[in-house]
Each structure stands twice: as C-alpha cells, then as structure tokens.
Design a protein around this nucleic acid. Sequence first.
DNA 1: CCAAAAGTGTTGACGTTACACCCATGT
DNA 2: ACATGGGTGTAACGTCAACACTTTTGG
Lengths: 243, 243
Amino acid sequence: MPDDTWKIPEIAVAVDLAIFTVRNGTFQIMLVERGIEPYLGMRALPGGFLNNSREAVDAAAIRELAEETGLDTDQLHLEQLRTYGEPNRDPRQRVVTVCYLAFVPGLSAPTAGGDARTADWAAVNNVLEPRTRLAFDHKTIVEDAVERARSKLEYTTLAAAFCGPEFTVTELREVYETVWGEDLDPRNFHRKVTGIEDFLVPTGAQTTRQGGRPAALYRRGPAHLLHPAMLRPPKPKPADRTC
Amino acid sequence: MPDDTWKIPEIAVAVDLAIFTVRNGTFQIMLVERGIEPYLGMRALPGGFLNNSREAVDAAAIRELAEETGLDTDQLHLEQLRTYGEPNRDPRQRVVTVCYLAFVPGLSAPTAGGDARTADWAAVNNVLEPRTRLAFDHKTIVEDAVERARSKLEYTTLAAAFCGPEFTVTELREVYETVWGEDLDPRNFHRKVTGIEDFLVPTGAQTTRQGGRPAALYRRGPAHLLHPAMLRPPKPKPADRTC
DNA sequence: CCAAAAGTGTTGACGTTACACCCATGT
DNA sequence: ACATGGGTGTAACGTCAACACTTTTGG
C-alpha cells in the first residue's frame, strides 16, 4: 500500500450482467439498447454504476438483476465473472466494471425490464457472430461469459437453473444440448443424470406434454457439484488439438 | 446506465495478489507486514492502488507482481481471482479491490520485495488456521485463492509453474502432494503425467539429486489444459457428503 | 396397430487403482 | 551386497459411448 502522501485515483465502478436463459430451444442473453451516448442505439449488457458509495458491489449486481428480470433474486444463480479495467473502455471517463453471470429459467417474462430501457433477449449464437458489435468491450465480456456458462454446466448442477420448478429429464437434456450446441444420447443422459445423488428429486408426478410415454417430473435437489462431471462431447476438429 | 444528471460515486480501486509458491515441501503464500494504519503491524496480501487513472487494472497487477517477486512476469502465471467490494472492508475510505492469483517457482528469492515493506513467505496451512488474522478481508481472500489454486491443479498443467525450468516427475508429484496435502501413488502418477501429450517435454538429461536411480528431466510442454483431469483423491470424510 | 417418447440392459473401450516387480545409481 | 528412488506390467474395477430392446402413452 502506498503511503498517504500520494494521491489515490478515484474511479467510477460499474456492474454489468450477463443474464442467460434457454427459451424456445435457443440459448439467449439479455441485452439493452442504449438510449444515450456513447454507443447510442447500440446494444449493451444491462448494468449500471453503484447507487452510492455505500452500496456493496455484489449488492449492486443483485439490484440490477432484480430490476432487469423482475424475479426473486434469492431463487436465481448469480456469480461473479471477471472485472474489466482497461483505461479506455469507456470514452467518457475511467470506468472499472465488475461483471456477473446469471442464469434464469426460460419461462421468465419476455421483456421484464423494470425501468425505461428496452431490454430484450438475443440469441447467443447471433451475438457471437463476428459481425455483431456491442457497446464498449461488451462483446469480449459476452464471449467470456458464454464460455464460463458452458463450462459451468459440465461440473455443476446449474443446468437445472434454466428449467422451471418441475421438469423432465428430456427438458434438462435439451438445456445441455441448447447451451452446448451438441446432441447428447437421450438414454445415456437419462441414466447418468438420474444416477447422480441429490441432483434430481422425483416429485412422483408425470407429464405427457411432450407426446409419447409420460415422463417423470423432477425438482432440483440439494447437490451443487456434479460428480463425476458431465463432459461435453469433443468436437471432431481435424488438425487442431487444444490439449 | 443511469442518465447523466445523477452523480456517479468515485471509488479507490486496488489490486491485491495471492502469490503462491512451493518451497521446502511447503505450500506458501507471500504476505507483507503493514507499516501504516490501519492494521499496523498485521500481515496482509501484497498489493496497492492503481498508479494513476490511466493504468489498466491488469497492468497494475503485473506491476505489483514484478515489484514483489523481482521476476520476469512474462514467465509467471497470473490470473484474476475475484473482486471484493464490500463497503466497509477498508475503514479509511471506500476501496474496491481486484484480486489476482500468481504461481511462482520455489527457487525464487526468499524475500524479494522491491520496495521497503517486509514481504515474506508464510505457510498456507498456518495462514488458514482459524486463529490467524490478516488485515482487511484478506483472510477470506486467501481462503478463496487457496481453493482456486488447488482446483487449478486438477484440470490445468499449472503445477509445473511451481517447478524450476527443468524438473523430475517426482518433483512435480511433490508439488501436487504439497498443495493438496494428499499422497499420490508415485507409479501411477508417473505413468499418467508422462502419458499426457504436450505436458512434459523430456530434455534427455538426467539427475541423481534425489539419490537412487537417476531421474529423467523434463521441461514444461505447450499444453495448458489437462485431459483427462488429475483428480484429487477423495478424502474419506465419514458422514459428510459434499456432492 | 403404429408412431413417438421414456426408460432399461448389454457390451466393448478406456481410465484409474493397487500393487508386484524390475532397473540404475550411491555407499 | 544393499538401500533408495525411478520406472513398467498387470489385473480388478468403474465409467462411458453406442445401440438393441422394452414400456407407455396418443391417434
């Protein structure tokens, strides 16, 4: 720590949220359209500055999440992703932003913004396209957030956070397939996921909403970590080893 | 983003470093003794405020790492851990700190502080003791950092970052055993680690520094991720399932 | 009866564990 | 010769991918 004689630079601290959902068989992220300069009219991650100099950074993220989704934040998954602190990432002034990752169920209101900004879901695959541009460094942030979200499904039970309170094994599998963009074997997936202790709690009820034989309904169990992990099927990339 | 009429709170941004090494069969972390209030005389993580309002947060972390270790930071592993932003974590003023994790080889200078503060290595196991107190919320940060470091060894090749430029399989195994506090089977470890492509590159040379049959020397290979992962042996905890 | 989706059984490939065993050096 | 640590072989076990097969509904 520097001694007290020298001046500490004071900096604006923001939080930004990468809020993901799975709806209509698509992996989606919430984006807002900017109503002010800079980047007027361009899409950006929802977020904002700390409300006042007493607000905790985590608390600001929870507040923003509640504002954007209108949901009970106790029920949602929210974790810190990373802090972005390049000096010129905001042209107005120096801003350091602490980014968070949130998972919300697919049945959430289509555009639930609590304030005046137009917030809407966007398909992650479209946002990741090279031609898509977002405000500030938010494109980079989205790339990081997507990779984090995808790998989180491998070793945690968070896939269930995209489902409603009760769901079938097939609905859970479709979450994995949608987020990863990979098909999984329904039989092996069923066996694996029902075999993990404390992951899925059977409700006893059944549903036939998918046609065919009725499927058992489950609720989220108390487990948070997946053991053993659910591995992404390795993409057959010829002549490119990422080992 | 709030509209421009309302005042954005400006906050001091710091970086703190959890610099780990493995020396003398002990997992160690660098701590400094504070020379000023608050927490005068108490130990804390090395770190400091941004040098000026133009310095990137990552750049500040690299600068601090160089100051503390005196080593070439290009050769060291440095990654962001988490940002801590509770409002009263520093009694003087509002400080948000971005924390980083660094791994340095065990042969580094015993106390390499570039500036006047007394920096020294401390055994992680001692620091984690319930009675050990650190300045600010640094005890919590160390707990998070240790857990991150331990799990990083599972699925990355970073264990080799604790070794010198050339090392034996046994030295690498001792890194794992030291960081995890678990014994590993030398025979299986050897087979596994030498079988992973691009992890270890044989130099052709041998050493006899451990006594007994000479051991082959290796250099770090280009691989960064471990596939399949190196799993921590499950601790036999009776009546406590963390699944 | 047929289509469709749910769920079970089986098999071979592969990775891990535990441990017997051999190899190469210093004293 | 013998102690010490380096390194290989091997069998039992568990997990996983692939896929045949049975079950239960709607039309």
